[in-house]
Write a protein that binds this DNA or RNA. Sequence first.
DNA 1: GCTGTGCATGACCGC
DNA 2: CGGTCATGCACAGCC
Length: 139
Amino acid sequence: MLHEINSPVENQIRNGRPRGDVRGKNQLLPRYWPRITDQELQQISGDSNSVITPLFEKMLSASDAGKVGRLVLPKKCAEAYFPPISQPEGLPLKVQDAKGSEWTFQFRFWPNNNSRMYVLEGVTPCIQSMQLQAGDIGN
DNA sequence: GCTGTGCATGACCGC
DNA sequence: CGGTCATGCACAGCC
């Protein structure tokens, strides 16, 4: 039988370049709050003086880790941590995990009922490599 | 014929 | 009642 995919994803976004990013929108749901501690961020950051913004922690669902490689991104989190995108194509997002591995995902959204559904594409290799557990840092 | 991408619908949860 | 998330179905493109 298939076991459900309940792996928490610890993501951090690394902002080495201020680009109108909005930090301070820390009003996400408690379920999405990153479990990472500030010390961890410091460790990940290393000797770099780049600004690290902790991302969210999401429970991967069947579709998220499916062969399609599509990971559904909660709207609250997406709008809070990622820059507002007006185009469905979105933009390529470079992500670095705590291990130092870099992954590139396609951050885009689909038109939904009255809102937009944010999705992360290209997560298959990443998930596959880290066995459904990822601590990522976006640049 | 098969695979991939996109969209739409349904269900669930929160307010 | 509204909003969001997840899954499924459909269409298109390529092998």
